[in-house]
Design a protein around this nucleic acid. Sequence first.
DNA 1: AGCGGGATTTTCT
DNA 2: GAAAATCCCGCTT
Length: 193
Amino acid sequence: MASELNLQFLEGVASEVAPRLLGCELERREGNQVIRVKIVETEAYDQTDVASHSYKGRTQRTDVMFGPAGYLYVYFTYGMHYCCNIVVGKEGHGAAVLIRAVEPVEGSEIMAARRGKSGVDISNGPAKVCQALAIDKKLNGHDLRSGVLRLIPKPDLPDEMIVQTVRVGISQGKDLPWRFYIKSNPYVSRPNS
DNA sequence: AGCGGGATTTTCT
DNA sequence: GAAAATCCCGCTT
């Protein structure tokens, strides 16, 4: 019950929710295995933003983005990668926050085995995060309050620990400073930008 | 350390 | 038919 109330902050606008997700944790359960990670890098996407999948309106692909906050939006890209977002904002408004990088807290050996990599390469990029946490299309629309993947809210980080900059890998909307990451965290995908 | 290209398929024009 | 919210490998400095 309390866990439903404390995801309330997700209903704000994407560019304000994105920095508040830094430091929050995700817990992934598969059978008796538990993986827990800390979110260290995010990007905001909103329907008023030309770079967002929701910009062109509600389609079959973006339907979850227009639903209520607290659900997972998973999309497939570049013919081989999944990326995951946390849906934010009010129902009917298409917005989400892309999880670009996470730091392993528990179960890092499971993540490393699934990635075939070690160190920061386990999860320092959006598609790497999905592979490490075994997130694919089946989890699109998943409720993050329960089940095999949960969002665990944490107190806001102090401003001086947060770096704000422009987003990565887009060709339009480049100037919006809607990328946020934890300062000096080794898992950030591109520290020098 | 940095650049360039290939992989591979969903989605919308 | 082309672009895509990316990653990895191999080649060159």
